[in-house]
Design a protein around this nucleic acid. Sequence first.
DNA 1: AGTGTATTTTAGAATTGGCTTAATTAAGAT
DNA 2: ATCTTAATTAAGCCAATTCTAAAATACACT
Lengths: 115, 115
Amino acid sequence: MPAFEALADPTRRRIVEMLARGALSAGEITQRFAVSRSAVSQHLKILRDARLVSAHAMGQRRIYELDTSGLVELEEWLDRIGPVWQKRLEALERERHEMLTVQPSRWRAAHSEDR
Amino acid sequence: MPAFEALADPTRRRIVEMLARGALSAGEITQRFAVSRSAVSQHLKILRDARLVSAHAMGQRRIYELDTSGLVELEEWLDRIGPVWQKRLEALERERHEMLTVQPSRWRAAHSEDR
DNA sequence: AGTGTATTTTAGAATTGGCTTAATTAAGAT
DNA sequence: ATCTTAATTAAGCCAATTCTAAAATACACT
């Protein structure tokens, strides 16, 4: 599951966000960051391996664009977890049921912030 | 964006997948892994901080369940990138247009696998 | 109070991750 | 051919992660 590993880094997330607005060359990407070319290049390699971006040569520069395969992998994982809105409803309903059946004092004790 | 960092680890992803099927105590989660209790406990803390799971005490054990807040954050990020299926269409259409306008030999040269 | 069980926290070692500089590859331009 | 520009790869450094073992905390029971 390389997409999650790739997107764990904030710089790489920003690169993906940038490319979502349109293709850019490696140099153009670098300009928008405070880090060196090689750092960006290394990030791009990780994103390429995760199929989140793809590159093709145009003369001496490499044009990067979004590759949706990695994003699809992400969406599929989320789908496997299940519909989020449904789980939110379930949680609320569970809580409502507890509030109605358990004594308020006990309920607050069981749900007081953990740690 | 702590949800991405949290899900970068495969063990933590598996924990979230497990909890998507139903709540479990910390001990039950540990049993399903090869690592020590404390390792799992540390993972759970990271997942808690990312609001991907929540815990409440039940007697001497802590019951963990999915917390959708973290997942919502993830979905929102994906939405900001834009509809994936639409981008897939765009990419295909771009390619089709190039295939029709550029000479085949040049097209293959520009799109041959990089590196 | 003291004991057992469940879990977390702390401390330390081994691994991984991200950055920089320097060297390398590739494609024009002169 | 040589030089410049664009980008990647290699090597080394420091910071962050992840694990284990040990100590600490929390609850239940007698």
